[in-house]
């Protein structure tokens, strides 16, 4: 099942990347990043089956970092929303020259 898992992981990661590039809602962009992390976790777990359980340990580390990233990212979204009253990335262009 390794090949199938890696193919599914690749597909989910690509869907996440396309979502990040296409969507303009900051919250959905964040969820797409979570989907990409999940796809990587699937690769870790599938490879851990063939190469020992260290991959599962890394999957748990990825989940921890994802939780921290979600908390900080959503706090940033709240802070931005207070300033510009929107989460549409089209209107958030403070750093554009």
């Amino acid at each position: 099942m390794l090949a199938e898992s890696l193919a599914l992981s690749a597909a989910l990661f690509t869907i996440g990347v396309v979502g990040v590039l296409v969507r303009r809602n900051a919250i959905i962009v964040f969820m797409c990043v979570e989907l990409m992390l999940n796809a990587v976790n699937l690769s870790f777990v599938a490879l851990a089956r063939a190469h020992g359980t260290a991959g599962q340990v890394f999957a748990i580390f990825v989940m921890t970092v994802a939780a921290a990233e979600a908390a900080v990212g959503l706090a940033i979204i709240i802070a931005i929303f207070r300033h510009v009253r929107t989460v549409n990335l089209k209107n958030i262009n403070l750093l554009r020259g």
């Binding site: 690749a10 296409v22 969507r23 303009r24 549409n88």
Partner: peptide, 26 residues
């Protein structure tokens, strides 16, 4: 809101390249 035509085309190209690359890796 979803990005305009060029954004979608660029995203589709990036997605196709990525899926080919990851399939080769798999």
């Amino acid at each position: 809101e979803i990005r305009g035509k060029w954004g979608r085309i660029a995203a589709a190209l990036v997605g196709l390249a990525l899926v080919a690359e990851l399939a080769a890796l798999s």
